[in-house]
Amino acid sequence: MIKSKSSMKRSQTLGHVAFYLGNLIIGIIFVSPLLWMIASSFKPESDIFANMTSIMTFIPTNFTIENYMEVFGRLNIPQVLFNTLSYIAIVLLGDLLFGSLCGYALAKMKFRFRGLILTGVIALMSMPVEAILLPLYIEMAQLGWVNTMMGLTIPFMMNCFSIYMFYSYFLDIPNDLIEAAAIDGCGPIKTFFKIIMPVAKTVYATVFILDFVARWNDFMWPFLITTGENKRTVQLAVQVFFGTQPIHYSAIMAALTLASIPMLIMYIFMQKYYVQGIASTGIKG
C-alpha cells in the first residue's frame, strides 16, 4: 500500500482523535454512576434529586462536607477501620507468610505428602466458599469465636489461590540460586528468608494487593460472623447505614464514597501488580 506521507500522518492524527474522544465519551458514561455518587456526597440533601435531567446533577453547586460530618457522627469510623484493617492484616499474614512458605516447599523441596498437598491445593482452588459457610459458622460457634476477631479473621488466613500463585512463581526460580545458598551453608529455611523472599517481591506485592482489595470489599463472611456493632467491617457498616433511619441519601452517598476511595487510590498506586495478578491466574479472593 502506498500512501503519501501527509495522508498517513492525517489518518494517524484522525486515529488519535477518535481514540481519545471515543474513550473519553464512553468512559465518562461508563463511570457516570460513580461520578454521581461522589458529586451527590458533596450536595445538601435537598439538591440530590433536583435537576436530575440536566448535567448539573453531576456538579455539586452548593458544595458541602456536612454529609461526611454526619457519617462520622453516626458511625464509629475508627472502630470500623480498625476492624477492617485487622481483618486484612491477619489474612495477609497468613497468605504472605504461610502461603509463600508452602508454595516454596511445594515448588522446590521434596517431602512427604507433597504430591497430595499440591493436588489438594489445586483442586480446592475452584471450591465455592459459599457452599461451606454453614459448617464453618458452626465450627466458629463451637470454638466460641462468633462475633470475635478470631472468628472473623482466622478462617480466611489461608487461600489456595495464594499458595498456587507463590508455587507457580517459585517454580521459575533457578535451582542454581538455591544450590549456591546450600553450598554456602544456608539451611533451607534460612535460604528462603535470606535469598528467595528478596527476589520474589513482585509476587508478594501481587498477592498483597489482591488480598487487600478482596478483604476490604468482602461482605458475606463479616456479615455472617459478626452480630454486633463493635466488630463490623467497612462493607457491613455501609450496608447497615443504608438501612438505618434517618435515611439521608446525601449521607449514604458520603458513606459509599468513603468506603470506595481508599481502594481506588490503592489500585492507582499498585495497578501494575493488581493487573498482573488478574492476568496471570485470574484470581479474585
Binding site: 497468613g94 507468610l97 504461610f98 512458605l101 508452602c102 516454596y104 516447599a105 511445594l106 523441596m109 521434596k110 517431602f111 512427604r112 505428602f113 507433597r114 498437598i117 489461608m158 539451611g187 533451607p188 529455611i189 528462603f192
Partner: peptide
Amino acid sequence: AGSIMSLP
C-alpha cells in the same frame, strides 16, 4: 524443612 514450611 519441607514439611515444617508447609505445615501452617
